[in-house]
Design a binder for these strands. Structure first.
Length: 586
RNA sequence: CGGGGCGUAGCGCAGCCUGGUUAGCGCGCCUGCCUUGGGAGCAGGAGGUCGUGUGUUCGAAUCACACCGCCCCGACCA
């Protein structure tokens, strides 16, 4: 019996004896971890930190990652994509072609090699893949093509956090599609969209595909795949009644057409001494914040712009940025506001203001509202859009709230947190143009590739799965992601009959094609139970005293704790049935 | 980078404010006994440049300054 020469079809060592594994579980949580997935991945011995945002994946952590990778690989291949592997180290020249060497910012780790050549570590691979395309794809007959890789990316994140959730080094699947036209690119996009739905479903995750901000490109060709979890860093809006789901930044506010019949009243100046905040002004005047319009000054690529929203609303900076077509917007400070408008903050209003004005659509529909008087200690009442002031643009500029109706069906909306695990994006011809990547179309014309890119944070998926599947005792792996699906506990290491039975059932489970680990450590039962729970292995098979008495072993489900006693032979067939049925769902 | 916090044994912490022998505790680890169905018990033991450097002092884990590292809150993203 030479354990070390046995491998299964996945190249995984067939004999997994806990006593020989590097699986350093921890009783206490390391101080460095804050969120559940991070704590559990450290406690369960899945990984160890090397330095900020950079981890070593220990055997069990790697096994979980491999599970995700394999699902991703299968579905990408099924969708017709081809796997390749691009370099991590990339020459700066390539990045200069697209201008991103300058634009990308400090997240791109730049360095010089021994010949003093400028280089960088790949945070993403549009440049490299486009270079391949322009060199190797020449004809419309070569298209469409979708190329992907599963690779370690490096992004020098400002603040890595939450373990694998936002590391600097992380494993990503990135795919790039090349098409002859917009229409064809949209087909490629939809294929990926469908593939992603299959991937995350197969991973056993509760997720939503949400419309995302697609920046300058526009259209509905950017979706983020969000795993619903409280620790998510993004806020998403989902409809309780229909399929609508969007990133908060992008969620469309649907105006309920309010036809106020209130007659327009005469504009008046009112004194509001020392009242600057919306709350203070409203309390002083005895009005609701929804009757007031606040005027906020932003710096749009450095230029001041006043934005009008109702007193109880918040400006959505991404919408503002897209409306203005600028790279960056930022709230102006008190001093900057005064410098630009000559009015101290708190009393700013649109009537007679000195800077550009844009208004949220809601403001244009309001009647007889209050605004700042553009004079210290004064506000104006009975102000009306159009009559008393104008705006350069009227648009949806505010953040959506749970009180807003669903833009798709009018139903009720809910805000929730999500972890972004995937992003599909139609790129268009930006990269192919800047890098001059062309093919010859059927009409003989040289055309630029229409591209798309599609990412999945593989290591993040593992963290997200744990965020979504755990209890006080540890991880509860969805079966498709579990490093092993059965753990056999030998509770009588020194008892020949028990040990022999544990060995046999372990071998039989392997022979049945299951991924199984044998806890053969000479430890007390309590410790083994705790470790089995912590590791999150879906099924636990215990061979102990009851076997000595009755010849039965215990099969327990990690997820619901359901426990059954049966003979080892029954256990093998029961587990095989449960697990193979689960894994056949493709 | 801005704001907050922390670096003492593999992990979790106390000691520091108010300097003074061999720097403690719990877990883990090693040896032995004992125990064996939910992180046992007893006995013995190994393990520390107190993050680094400079300074103050008769004397620094303890005080000061600088640096390094890590964690948390903000802008970024898979």
């Amino acid at each position: 019996m030479d354990d070390h020469l046995e491998f299964n079809q996945n190249g995984k060592r067939n004999t997994m004896r806990y006593s020989q594994l590097l699986l350093p579980t921890l009783k206490e949580s390391p101080a460095e971890a804050e969120v559940v997935s991070h704590v559990l991945m450290l406690r369960a011995g899945f990984m160890r930190k090397l330095t900020a945002g950079i981890y070593t994946y220990l055997p069990f952590g790697l096994a979980a990652i491999r599970k995700v990778e394999n699902i991703v690989r299968e579905e990408m291949n099924r969708a017709g994509a081809q796997e390749l592997l691009m370099p991590m180290v990339q020459p700066a020249d390539l990045w200069k072609e697209t201008g991103r060497y300058e634009k990308y910012g400090p997240e791109l780790l730049r360095f010089h090699d021994r010949h003093d050549r400028e280089s960088c570590l790949g945070p993403t691979h549009e440049e490299v893949i486009t270079d391949i395309a322009r060199k190797e794809l020449h004809s419309y007959r070569d298209l469409p093509v979708n190329l992907y890789q599963i690779q370690t990316k490096f992004r020098d994140e400002i603040r890595p956090r939450f373990g694998l959730m936002r590391g600097r080094e992380f494993i990503m699947k990135d795919a790039y599609s090349f098409d002859v036209s917009d229409e064809a690119a949209e087909v490629s996009y939809m294929k990926m969209y469908e593939a992603y739905k299959r991937i995350f479903s197969r991973c056993g995750l509760d997720f939503r595909a949400v419309q995302a901000d697609s920046g300058a490109i526009g259209g509905s060709f950017s979706h983020e795949f969000m795993v619903l979890a409280k620790t998510g860093e993004d806020t998403i809006v989902i409809c309780k009644d229909c399929e609508y789901a969007a990133n908060m930044e992008k969620a469309v506010v649907k105006l309920t057409p309010e036809t106020s019949t209130e007659p327009l009243a005469e504009m008046e100046k009112v004194e509001t001494p020392g009242k600057r905040k919306v709350e203070a002004v409203c309390e002083f005047l005895g009005i609701e914040p929804s009757l007031l319009v606040k005027t906020l000054v932003f710096k749009a690529d450095g230029q001041p712009v006043a934005v009008l929203v109702r007193g109880d609303r918040e400006v959505e900076e991404v919408k503002l940025k897209n409306l203005l077509g600028v790279a960056d917007v930022e709230m102006a400070g008190d001093e900057e506001v005064f410098k630009a408008t000559g009015v101290p903050t708190g009393y700013l209003g649109p009537v007679g203001i000195r800077v550009r004005v844009v208004a949220d659509q809601e403001v244009a529909a309001m009647r007889n509202f209050y605004v700042g008087g553009n004079e210290k200690n004064y506000h104006l009442k009975n102000v009306n859009f159009g009559r008393d002031f104008q705006a350069e643009a009227v648009a949806d500029l505010r953040q959506i709230t749970p009180g807003d109706p669903c833009p798709a069906c009018g139903g009720q909306l809910k805000l929730t947190e999500g972890i972004e695990v995937g992003h599909v994006f139609k790129l268009g011809t930006g990269y192919s143009q800047s890098m001059n990547a062309t093919f010859q179309d059927s009409d003989g014309q040289e055309k630029h590739f229409v591209m798309g890119c599609y990412g999945i944070g593989v290591s993040r998926v593992v963290a997200a799965a744990i965020e979504q599947n755990h209890d006080d005792n540890g991880i509860i792996f969805p079966i498709p992601l579990a490093p092993y699906t059965v753990i056999v506990l030998n509770l009588g290491v020194k008892d020949e009959a028990i040990s022999a039975a544990a060995e046999k059932v372990y071998r039989d489970l392997q022979a049945a094609g299951l991924e199984v680990i044998l806890d053969d450590r000479d430890e007390r039962p309590g410790l083994k139970f705790k470790d089995a729970d912590l590791l999150g292995i879906p099924y636990r098979l215990t061979v102990g005293n009851s076997f000595a008495k009755s010849g039965k072993v215990e099969v327990r489900s990690r997820r619901d704790g359901a426990t059954e006693e049966m003979t080892p032979e029954e256990a093998v067939s029961v587990l095989r049935e449960k697990l193979l049925a689960e894994l056949m769902k493709k």
